[in-house]
Simulated assay, not measured.
Amino acid sequence: MGENLYSVCELTAEQQKAFNKLKKAYKECEKTGIYFANCYGSLMAFDKNLVAGYGDCTMTPDGEYTVELHNGCPADSMQIVNEWADDTHVLGLTKKGMKLYLSNEE
């Protein structure tokens, strides 16, 4: 990653404060025994006492038993941005973001 992309990915102070709250809430959820799984941008929450892992046909989940899911999962969940996998990653910049990106190339 080029050094000139760092300023494009920087949050404002207000955004950083909000993101820090989200990270703290995530840690609090983990402390209470929530196991998280991300399936194509849907962040699912499970009780770690009941669910030990999440996987697919090629990546067997942790746990003594497995249950195959066919039409999604009834877990408590919230839609988040889609995760990046092993693909080539691309950011879509606004005009302001592109101007900042290009100004850092000089």
Rank of each mutant, 00 (worst) to 15 (best):
T60Q: 08
G53K: 00
S77Q: 11
H70Q: 12
K99F: 05
C9P: 02
T32C: 10
Y54M: 08
T94A: 02
K21P: 05
V90F: 04
L43K: 05
K31T: 04
Y54G: 05
A52W: 05
G41D: 00
M98E: 12
M1S: 10
K31C: 05
C9D: 07
F46K: 04
C39G: 08
T66K: 05
N71K: 12
C39Y: 12
Y40R: 15
D86M: 10
Q79W: 13
I34V: 11
E14P: 00
W84K: 05
E64G: 13
K96G: 09
N38P: 00
Q16G: 14
A52R: 08
G92Y: 12
A45C: 11
A37L: 04
Y101R: 02
A37M: 06
C9H: 05
K96E: 14
K99R: 11
C9N: 08
C9L: 15
K95Q: 10
G63Y: 03
P74A: 04
L43C: 06
D56A: 03
S103Q: 12
M1H: 15
T32L: 13
K95W: 04
G72F: 00
G97Q: 03
A52D: 06
K27H: 10
Q16W: 04
L43T: 03
Q79L: 13
Y54K: 05
D47K: 12
C39H: 14
E3R: 14
K24N: 11
Y40T: 14
L50C: 11
F19W: 09
G41P: 01
F46Q: 03
E30Q: 12
G63C: 03
C73T: 01
F19I: 07
T58N: 15
Q79G: 10
E30S: 06
L102Y: 14
C57H: 11
D56S: 07
M59R: 15
T66Q: 06
G53R: 00
G55L: 01
G72T: 01
Y35N: 07
L22G: 10
G92Q: 14
E28K: 13
E28D: 15
N71V: 08
I34F: 04
K95R: 11
E68Y: 12
A75E: 00
F46E: 00
T88Y: 14
C39T: 06
Y65G: 10
N38K: 02
N71P: 06
G63K: 02
A37D: 05
T32M: 11
F19R: 09
M98S: 07
V51C: 09
E64H: 09
C29W: 05
V51G: 03
N20S: 14
V90L: 06
Y35A: 05
D87N: 12
E30H: 06
M78T: 07
C29H: 09
D76C: 09
W84V: 06
E68F: 11
Y65P: 13
G97F: 00
K31W: 07
Y54D: 04
C57K: 14
S103Y: 05
S103F: 05
S103I: 02
F36I: 00
S103P: 01
P61F: 02
C29D: 13
Y54V: 08
L69Q: 12
G41W: 00
T94R: 01
P61K: 00
E68D: 11
Y6K: 13
Y65A: 11
Q15G: 15
G53Y: 00
D56V: 01
A85Y: 08
L91K: 04
A25I: 15
G41K: 00
P61D: 01
G63F: 03
A85Q: 12
C39I: 09
L5D: 02
V81R: 10
E28A: 10
